[in-house]
């Protein structure tokens, strides 16, 4: 049983042109959700994701927006709601890294990571909750990270944002639980994507599973959290990390 077949609404995945985001977009489309594939700059890659979903018989739309801009965010929701209906599944996946030791981390690198990875997730959630609450159904899935709950030298900005997402997840989950809206986080560990291509040495040796995860393994968890099966799971963080945080 999946939620999509019974609902008039769609899924929005931010930062869905590549990596974990694109895998989640494909998985939710396979579950029957019309999917809005948000991208910031990678229009061709987003079009490819949409093409893949269409080829598999799904429904998808690529929508460009820099979600750190409130104006672009409003326009994103307007387009998505017009074309695909209310956003009933929101996956806050858009993220970036700007690594440096705290001693030399610039204000700009601090702010851009917090804005993109945390503040924009709050704003998209605030926007989407309005429709979810009216629908008495909703799924917010925040893509956090094992970095945050766990230390990683050189990523204080990233760790702060990702740990912040977990805190935000818990509190918003409690605020909206009785409207049938769940809010959960996924904390991926070392996942094989462009974003982690330079990270595999030392971190990989710390992974008990002795391998990197795949975007599809993260997407399977998002698919579960979006489903009717996960209706009683809220405020939780699901670690998909090969045991790294255990």
């Amino acid at each position: 049983m999946n939620a999509a077949s019974e609902r008039h609404g769609c899924a929005l995945v931010t930062g869905a042109s590549r990596g974990i985001g694109s895998a989640i977009a494909c998985a939710l489309a396979a579950d029957g959700w019309p999917v809005a594939v948000n991208f910031r700059a990678s229009e061709d890659a987003a079009a490819e994701v949409v093409g893949r979903i269409h080829d598999a018989g799904g429904r998808a739309l690529a929508v460009g927006a820099d979600i750190t801009s409130q104006q672009q965010l409003d326009r994103l929701f307007q387009t998505v709601e017009q074309e695909l209906g209310r956003v009933l599944v929101l996956v806050n996946n858009a993220g970036m890294r700007a690594d440096d030791l705290a001693l030399s981390l610039t204000d700009s690198d601090w702010s851009s990571v917090i804005d993109t990875n945390l503040t924009s997730a709050f704003r998209t959630t605030r926007h989407a909750l309005r429709g979810m609450i009216r629908e008495r159904f909703g799924r917010v899935i925040n893509i956090s990270s094992v970095i945050g709950p766990r230390a990683n030298a050189g990523q204080s900005n990233y760790a702060a944002a990702k740990a912040g997402l977990i805190g935000m997840t818990k509190t918003i989950a409690v605020e909206v639980a009785r409207r049938g809206v769940t809010v959960n986080a996924i904390a991926p560990g070392l996942i094989d994507t462009d974003m982690t291509a330079d990270l595999d040495g030392e971190l990989l040796s710390a992974v008990p599973a002795r391998r990197a995860g795949t975007p599809e393994e993260v997407a399977a968890c998002a698919s579960f959290l979006a489903s009717e099966h996960a209706g009683y799971v809220t405020g939780s963080t699901l670690y998909v990390d090969g045991g790294l945080a255990a």
Binding site: R130, I133, R134, E175, V176, R178, R179
Partner: peptide, 9 residues
Amino acid sequence: LDLAELSQI
């Protein structure tokens, strides 16, 4: 939460 939803309505 109810009042927030009422505001939205």
